[in-house]
Structures are given as C-alpha cells and as structure tokens.
Design a protein around this nucleic acid. Structure first.
Length: 346
DNA sequence: AACTAAGCCAACCGCCACCTG
DNA sequence: CCAGGTGGCGGTTGGCTTAGT
C-alpha cells in the first residue's frame, strides 16, 4: 500500500497561481501566519490548493524581502564556492544569500552559472575543449583560467576553514562541461596536511595545471604540483611525478591519496585516481570506496606500477559509453580487492 | 510570417528526516 | 520503540518566452 496523499488531488488546483490566489494567500498569512500547519492552511484561506503548493508559493514568491532579478558577481562567487564545497545543497547555499530562494539558485546554476563558468574556462584557453586533439602532447602545462584558479583558491581555503578531511574535485569536459566538487566523490586538496604535500606557489596555494589527453578530446589530465612536483612528509619519504617517455607517472601524498598514470604510448598519458582516503587524525589513512562509501584500509598501488593492466585499461577507456564522466569500473573477479574499483581519469 | 529549437523558471513530485502521540 | 503526519529538500517537468532559421 502506498503512502496517503497529502491532499485530495482531485479537488486541488494545479499550475500557475493567479493574482487572486496570491492575494488570498498573502493576506491570510500576514493576518494569521501559517499556524505551523501548511496542510490545513489552504482550506482556512479559502484556496483550492495543496498545502505544499501554498508553502512553495509563499516561500519562493510571496514572502517579504524576496530578491528577484540578476545575480551579482559576488553572489555568483558565493554560489560557485559553496557548490564546490558542498554540492547541490541549495537550501544551505540559499541561506548564505539573503533574499534568494533555493529554487532560484538551483535554476540559476542549472541554466546559467554552470555555463558561465565553462565559458570562462574556455575563453582563457581558446579551443582547449572544443577542438579535437591533433599533434603531440603539449610539453608546457597550461595555466588554469583565473576564474578557475579563484575557485580553487576559495575552495581550498573553505576546506581548510571547515577542517574537512575529504573533499573532491572532478573536472569534466566536453559538451556538458562543468566543474564539480563535493564531499561524496574523489578526494583532492582538502586539508592542510594534504595541501602541504604539494608544491605551493608564492601565494601558498597549490599550482594546478591541466593537459589535453591525446586522442580523446573530451579528456583532460589534471596535474597538480607542477612539473617538478614533489612532496615531503613527516616520515621523510618523497614521491615525484614525472612526465617523460616510458616513465610511470605516480604521485602519492601523505594522506595516502594515490595519483597514478602511465605512458600509454609515446606522448599519451593519463592519470588515475582510485578512491579516496580519509585521515581520521590518527595517522591512519582509511580508504573509502567512491561508490559505496565503505571504509577500508586497502593498500595503495592499485593497478600496480608495472602497467600490467595497461591494455585492459586502454580498452576500457576507448570503449567508454560516450559519457562525459571520465571513469571506468575495474571489477574483474580475477583481480584482487586492491585492484577492483572505480577509477577516474582526467 | 511561420515554424522550430533553445532557454528559462515556476511548480510539481517523491523521498526522507523529524516530530508527536 | 513505533507509526503516521508533516515539512523540507532536491530532481524533474512542462509551459511560456525568446532566438534562430
């Protein structure tokens, strides 16, 4: 048996509100308040509407101090920063923008802001995402657009501020480009410990760069730490990332985050990042499966550094189902637990 | 001018967390 | 502790408007 409907669907009006209905609702609430019961309100107010519909109309349109019209640059920035940090938690984002409703912000993000962000990215790197790759891999990293840099900067500082242990960055490209960061996906520059493991620039921020992925114009490789990236840690170990021919690309930070790639062919490279790690403050790095969210303590080094699964990985990527999400599942029963999982590449 | 596609946004739907008896 | 009711939330839809052909 299904749940009982909140109102008699047959006897309620749906669709756009008329000025007369707006006036009735506004007058009633200004006089008597909501009474803490939206379900009973429409009848009392003489409206043939569902209580939920009344609530939505009041909150999103009729209540005082609702701000309509263009979003300011500052509002844009706040939305981007918060979206990068917490994802589509529109009500929380709306709470930071007086006068704006969650619905408004959600619509604005989905229809305009997301595109605006991508335009900014593309305009500072003309052709970067729109032209098919032809030629050799760029040897010089391209700087991120200032918009994106600013976003990462805000994002990083927000994470530090919130002392969040895990957060994520996914850089999607292609027709549905957008920058997405939230706490449910991949880990990336989040805590002070983690950031310290990357070479920081003069501003104390991590340098981020990206490359095109040759042969797949929708794929980009996100690189952090620069060409000479290195990291040091409390135990004195150091990993280095390198880009030369025949070299395995690998970087592991002291949070246990592993970033790894291979030379697929000459000048063809990609990076893989498997799962995410959470530092619980006890110096143990717990692996979190990005899909299930389950914690475990699997060892690093997934897929190994000898490229033994190279052909298989290449196959998986080349037969991608057209999705713009640059990921594949490595879930062969013959593989060890360490090797199985969801992989992302940039 | 007529038609189509794309953009936009108000409103709806269904799930879920919380509250209360 | 449990079950039902309600509010809140995020994803999605549908219809109106605008832009393009």
């Amino acid at each position: 048996m299904g749940r009982a409907p909140c109102c008699d669907k047959a006897n309620v009006k749906k669709g756009p509100w008329s000025p007369d209905e707006d006036a009735k609702l506004k007058e009633f609430i200004e006089k008597f308040g909501t009474g803490g019961n939206w379900i009973a309100l429409p009848q009392k107010a003489g409206l043939k509407r569902c209580g939920k519909s009344c609530r939505l109309r009041w909150l999103n349109y009729l209540r005082p101090n609702i701000k309509h019209g263009e979003f300011s640059d500052e509002e844009d920035r706040i939305i981007c920063t918060l979206y990068a940090s917490i994802g589509s938690r529109w009500s929380i984002i709306a709470a930071q923008l007086p006068g704006r409703t969650d619905n408004d912000i959600k619509n604005y993000w989905n229809t305009k802001l997301k595109k605006k962000l991508i335009m900014g990215l593309n305009s500072s790197n003309p052709g970067k995402f729109t032209q098919p790759f032809s030629g050799s891999l760029q040897t010089q990293p391209q700087p991120l657009s200032s918009d994106l840099s600013q976003l990462y900067r805000d994002y990083n500082s927000l994470c530090l501020q919130a002392a969040k242990s895990v957060s994520a960055v996914e850089l999607f490209s292609g027709p549905q480009n957008f920058l997405h960061c939230n706490s449910d996906n991949l880990s990336f520059l989040s805590t002070s410990q983690c950031s310290n493991n990357y070479q920081q620039n003069q501003e104390g921020l991590v340098d981020l760069q990206y490359y095109e992925y040759p042969g797949k114009d929708n794929v980009n490789m996100l690189v952090f730490g620069g060409n000479e990236a290195s990291c040091s840690s409390s135990d004195g170990s150091c990993s280095q990332i390198s880009y030369g021919k025949e070299q395995v690309i690998k970087q592991e930070d002291q949070m246990g985050c592993l970033y790894q790639g291979f030379n697929v062919e000459e000048s063809q490279k990609f990076m893989l990042h498997h799962g995410k790690y959470v530092d619980h403050g006890d110096h143990h790095h717990h692996h979190v499966d990005p899909i299930s969210g389950f914690l475990d303590q699997r060892a690093n080094g997934v897929l190994g550094n000898n490229s033994q699964y190279l052909e298989e990985v290449k196959q998986l990527i080349s037969t991608g189902n057209g999705s713009n999400v640059n990921s594949f599942v490595f879930n062969d029963e013959n593989k060890t637990d360490h090797e199985r999982g969801m992989y992302y590449y940039y």
